[in-house]
């Protein structure tokens, strides 16, 4: 009997053990700082998009909530951090926390709109919310700068030590650090009883309720956390560019982040990060090659990818893992 208990404990531990590929992933992300010194600004954008996609993964991949308006929380976070800095409080970490609180609170307030209802109503409601926010930001020019954007933001050095520079050195390391810390928190949460209950709701809401899981409460919490994460991405965007424009609330932001997550695959935390690398790399390469028509090519890629390539790429990753068992850590047990 106690032998079975040991096996149960071992199985539960195995699901949260660090995979060697994860360590390699983060080492590459850090190593890129020295490897590609001329692309730090692009890498900073990738890190921010990755955090935004991680935030969407928390609700889409883990809780099964679809959203076409996730930019609402990105935008709120960006304006919150930007306005705080504009009003003399330029400490980046303070701005980051403030943006997370503002966006998280907005997530909590709007969560009743999405916890009930089906996928279609969720798509429409989330889209509606971001359209409303976009119009508010546009009209309230005295606060947000309207269509001209929020200008005159000055950000202090990170921790009072590392000033932001033109090449994106500080920006990349700052964004990557925030991404890593928030990733660690998310990883811990998704392996907790709370995270497991989100998966339960995503898998089968009927059984979740019949197992004593209150779906509305858990979905509202997940939505709040995801909103705070999106707010952090918004803060990074505002702080590292020292500018906030209406573009942060644009529809394409919500659409892009969903594409990013679908490219990388939802539900295992790394999808958003891998997707962000692929998406930004494609965008950058195609735009350099054909600046006017890059949208055409990325559109074509996405159509083909969703129809065929997704299974090819994800199948390829799986095959890679099974061919190299030492890499997946299975050889040890």
């Amino acid at each position: 009997m106690s032998h079975l208990q040991d096996r149960v404990r071992a199985s539960l531990q195995a699901s949260r053990r660090w995979h060697i590929a994860e360590i390699v992933f983060w080492l590459i992300a850090l190593g890129s700082f020295w490897a590609f010194p001329r692309h730090l600004l692009l890498m900073n954008e990738i890190a921010i998009l990755a955090l935004f996609a991680l935030s969407l993964d928390l609700i889409l991949g883990f809780a099964g909530i679809v959203s076409l308006g996730h930019a609402a929380f990105l935008g709120l976070g960006a304006y919150a951090a930007g306005l705080l800095a504009k009003n003399g409080m330029g400490d980046p970490v303070l701005g980051l926390v403030f943006a997370m609180v503002v966006s998280g609170f907005a997530g909590l307030l709007s969560s009743p709109l999405i916890v009930k209802g089906n996928d279609l109503t969720r798509l429409m409601v989330t889209l509606g919310v971001v359209l409303i926010l976009h119009e508010i930001a546009n009209s309230w020019a005295s606060l947000t700068g309207g269509a001209d954007g929020l200008q005159g933001i000055t950000i202090n050095p990170v921790l009072g030590l590392f000033a932001f520079d033109l090449f994106g050195k500080t920006a990349y390391l700052y964004s990557l650090s925030v991404l890593f810390v928030l990733f660690l928190v998310a990883r811990r949460m998704m392996n907790s009883p709370f995270g497991l209950s989100l998966r339960a709701i995503r898998d089968n809401q009927l059984r979740a309720a019949a197992s004593g899981v209150p779906p509305s409460q858990r979905l509202a919490l997940a939505y709040t956390i995801a909103a705070a994460y999106a707010g952090a991405a918004g803060a990074l965007l505002a702080q590292t560019s020292q500018f906030v424009s209406l573009d942060v609330l644009d529809f394409h932001r919500s659409a892009d982040v969903m594409l990013v997550l679908i490219i990388g695959g939802p539900g295992y935390l790394y999808g958003g990060m891998i997707g962000a690398v692929v998406f930004k790399f494609l965008q950058d390469t195609i735009a350099a090659f054909t600046p006017q028509y890059w949208m055409f090519w990325i559109g074509l890629f996405l159509v083909l990818f969703v129809l065929r390539g997704r299974s090819l790429i994800h199948g390829g990753v799986k095959l890679f893992m099974t061919r190299l068992p030492w890499l997946s850590g299975r050889g040890r047990s």
Partner: peptide
């Protein structure tokens, strides 16, 4: 009505943790 992507172990551990009132423990 099951949690298709989980293992029996995870599903039973989840129901047990909910019964013990651990459902909100995120860390």
């Amino acid at each position: 009505q099951l949690f298709a992507t989980m293992t029996p172990l995870q599903m039973i551990a989840l129901v047990t943790s909910e019964r013990l009132g651990y459902g909100l423990r995120a860390f």
